[in-house]
Design a protein around this nucleic acid. Structure first.
Lengths: 220, 220
DNA sequence: ATATATTTTTAGGCAACTCTAAATTTTTTC
DNA sequence: GAAAAAATTTAGAGTTGCCTAAAAATATAT
């Protein structure tokens, strides 16, 4: 009755695609998320459904059951704690840790996770600003806005990113943008919605809407 | 051409059963080591042989090729480094880490291993006293003797264990025996070869031959 | 040196997870 | 509200790693 690496990945991806409201996830979305074919997804959905980890009715998409949700949160907790470890303890860049954490998240010892969390100081957010559920599955709350939704004149701090891909994170690195940076939105260009921002009171920079849509901020 | 979790386990076990002289390992020994049946072992040996990771001739046992040996050492390096991490960094007992390290050893990033080693201070020995190969596969040398081979009157330090199972390690914990302890062999009982030893100049203790055969020591 | 015991391999098969191709259901469009 | 398009499921099959039962090779013993 243990759950395989593959099953765990499905639960995690269903959770991520399902959002906080627990919306139905489609077979095709899962095929894309798992990099497999839709037919393979259907097979796995039957299996997860038999194990009562998901609610599945043919052609209707899936949601996690309570048990499935708990398992998903456990895996997400592990993934994010390992990311903190890789960045804070081992000195990896935030653009390098996703794939390694993807493997580490399936190591199955509860005691390991709890000790790791304690060693790291029970962090609430990972290196990309994503919340880390506690051992009971409670997510720290944090209502962030996208930088693209901030009005001219507002002063905000960068709290997270929505795009976790290496190219985006490296672009931020090259621009000198990192978590915790303080921004003042000086001007928003009417034509392309790019923003002129003052970073940490020292440097001004243009940020395209493409980028600002993927930056999460909090009012200062 | 990547190697699976299972293949890696075979290489590691072949290495461990093969000893430093690279002696042939039998199918049955592998069946025992992998907790599978001999027929399954034969299947896997064919596969590893095709990949040129082992030298295999039917009915003749197997040895590692140079490539196989390098891979095995890499896995052993990872296993032992993770054990150091679990004990030194996370505070696990030396009797608790084997199974977790057994999983962690298959995480595949070279950069991860190197950074982990650096973070731990490039340790040469794991919590059980086993040598940790460096990134090139060189084993630190250490010629230890078994405590059971030490003569009356000698003074030695405990450097490692041969039995890695939880019950043995817990027995040592309860007896107050740990790596680095200094022993003076006061007396060896003729009848059952048990030894009366003085530990760290403060405490005397009887050690059965069963135990002393599994303790590795070095002359002081 | 031959019979017996042991070890190892072959043969055939099962479970997990994947695939392609074809069939079915749902959604969209006119 | 059909017909066309898109999404999903079924059918049949491949790979990996495991199994049992039976056959073949090697080792042991008298």
């Amino acid at each position: 009755m243990a759950n395989s690496f593959t099953e765990e990945n499905y639960l995690k991806i269903i959770h991520n695609l399902s959002g906080s409201e627990g919306v139905e996830v489609s077979t095709n979305a899962l095929a894309e998320g798992t990099s497999t074919r839709a037919a393979s997804v259907t097979d796995m959905l039957k299996k997860l459904s038999e194990k009562e980890l998901i609610n599945y009715k043919k052609y209707q998409g899936v949601t996690l059951t309570e048990t499935g949700e708990k398992l998903a949160l456990k895996i997400i907790r592990k993934h994010r704690l390992w990311e903190v470890f890789l960045v804070d303890t081992l000195g990896f860049g935030w653009d390098e840790v996703h794939d390694i954490a993807e493997e580490l998240e399936h190591i199955p010892s509860d005691r390991l996770v709890d000790r790791l969390a304690a060693f790291l100081g029970n962090p609430q957010f990972d290196p990309h600003g994503d919340p880390i559920p506690d051992a009971k599955g409670n997510m720290p709350t944090a209502d962030y806005r996208k930088l693209s939704e901030v009005a001219e004149g507002e002063r905000v701090a960068i709290m997270g990113v929505l795009d976790h891909e290496t190219p985006f994170l490296q672009h931020l690195d090259r621009s000198g943008i990192m978590l915790g940076c303080r921004l003042e939105v000086k001007e928003i260009n009417d034509y392309d919605k790019s923003a002129l921002v003052l970073i940490d009171e020292v440097k001004t920079l243009f940020i395209s809407q493409e980028v600002s849509k993927n930056l999460l901020v909090q009012r200062l």
